[in-house]
């Protein structure tokens, strides 16, 4: 019997997740076609950038995006998926890729804040971080994803404002740790949860379905979005132009409209 296709791909790639990566590679990138200006620029970007990133660029038609969780994108890049630009929602994953030499020097292009969201009807009458103890059902992102980790930090920090018993009291009300932050938001938008802690940009995207409350300044959490040219890129000039576009007037306006902030507005974490 002739060995071909998937089995040999598994043998070549070290990761057990290779078949998945190979599939994504086949769908998202075209590694076999020769480099040329007609080729679209491949951008791997965190899922939370989905709505905004195309709007920052003058020619979105010549871009091809792959939006997914930052960890998934990192795994795909580590397994040889082709991309020109990588935009991460988390510093750690970018640093890990940078250490492996898979990306060039990263730079911060946007920051995001956490907010407390409640359904538009606000059944539990929650008006901020301190009211989370009023929730019957509180939903967070899982501690494994950045948004979940930051939310836990904010809750711990709130002990300073609302007393040492506050974090435990809040955690008793958590009914689910959703696998990504958009699902946490979705549970609130559907009215199933009384409150969640999500990114400000997510709350913005949900429009009238939810109401958002900023965390108190003392426990504010700022998450950073680094971006970098991928080392294997065949279009580094265009990749750099893409990144420059983010700090253009059009780029800044689009990011701010989506709820992102400049990172110099507050002390970076």
């Amino acid at each position: 019997m002739r060995r071909s296709g998937p089995p040999s791909a598994v043998c070549r790639l070290p990761q057990a997740l290779a078949p998945l990566a190979a599939l994504v590679l086949a769908v998202a990138g075209c590694p076999s076609t020769p480099a040329g200006d007609s080729e679209p620029l491949v951008v791997f970007a965190a899922a939370s950038l989905q709505d905004v990133l195309p709007a920052t660029q003058p020619e979105p038609a010549r871009l091809r995006f792959n939006f997914a969780g930052t960890q998934q994108l990192r795994t795909q890049l580590e397994n040889g998926a082709y991309a020109d630009v990588f935009a991460s929602a988390d510093r750690r994953h970018m640093e890990a890729l940078s250490r492996q030499g898979l990306v060039e020097a990263p730079e911060l292009f946007a920051c995001n804040r956490l907010v407390v969201v409640v359904p538009a009807t606000n059944p539990a009458q929650i008006n901020g971080l301190g009211d989370l103890v009023k929730a019957r059902r509180l939903v967070l992102a899982a501690p494994e994803v950045p948004a979940g980790r930051y939310a836990e930090e904010a809750i711990d920090c709130a002990a300073r404002l609302f007393g040492p018993g506050f974090p435990a009291e809040v955690r008793k009300r958590i009914v689910s740790r959703e696998l990504n932050v958009r699902q946490a938001l979705g549970k609130v938008a559907l009215g199933e949860a009384d409150a969640a802690i999500v990114y400000r940009t997510d709350a913005q995207a949900a429009k009238d379905a939810v109401r958002a409350f900023a965390l108190s300044t003392e426990c504010d959490v700022l998450s950073e979005y680094p971006i970098a040219v991928v080392a294997a890129s065949r279009h580094k000039d265009r990749a750099r132009a893409f990144i420059a576009g983010l700090s253009s007037a059009k780029g800044r306006a689009a990011l701010e409209a989506a709820g992102f902030t400049r990172c110099d507005e507050a002390t970076a974490r």
Partner: peptide, 16 residues
């Protein structure tokens, strides 16, 4: 409510 597949997916986010 975290069954094995959900635990796997959660772990995928941090610890391959």
């Amino acid at each position: 409510t975290q069954t094995l597949p959900l635990a796997i997916y959660s772990a995928l986010e941090s610890d391959l």
